[in-house]
């Protein structure tokens, strides 16, 4: 089980592995490392093709091994999200963020914590 506050309560919880979450379902404040870009999202038909999305994400710097942290979320259903990606900040919608798998850094997560 992931620690409380790790995954947004309204997200369907079917993570393949305990400490790996889809970025799009992460709660504000989680920190971790990107383990896979271009994961299957089961996205809606009006989303861009998975391979295209993968390259788009790669080009803006979402690459395996990058340090990541969800800094902020929008006020309507927590969407879009703003993440720290290594030393830059990127905003994206949760729908697209689902294609990024993140290994959450154990223990050091506080659910509400954007403090650092």
């Amino acid at each position: 089980m992931p620690p409380a506050g790790l995954v947004r309560s309204d997200a369907p919880g079917d993570e393949p592995c305990a400490d790996i979450v889809q970025l799009g379902r992460g709660a504000r404040g989680i920190r971790g490392t990107v383990v896979q870009v271009g994961a299957e999202t089961g996205a809606l038909p009006d989303c861009v093709a998975a391979a295209e999305l993968e390259r788009l994400l790669l080009e803006i710097g979402f690459v395996e091994g990058a340090a990541i942290e969800i800094l902020h979320e929008g006020f309507i259903r927590g969407d879009p999200i703003a993440v720290r990606l290594d030393d830059m900040r990127v905003a994206l919608r949760r729908r697209e963020a689902d294609a990024i798998l993140v290994r959450v850094a154990g223990g050091s997560t506080h659910a509400a914590g954007s403090e650092s």
Binding site: C47, A49, L56, R89, L92
Partner: peptide, 10 residues
């Protein structure tokens, strides 16, 4: 397809 919203926050 609707354009993804992925944007750097400078």
């Amino acid at each position: 397809a609707s354009e993804p919203f992925i944007m750097e926050l400078p």
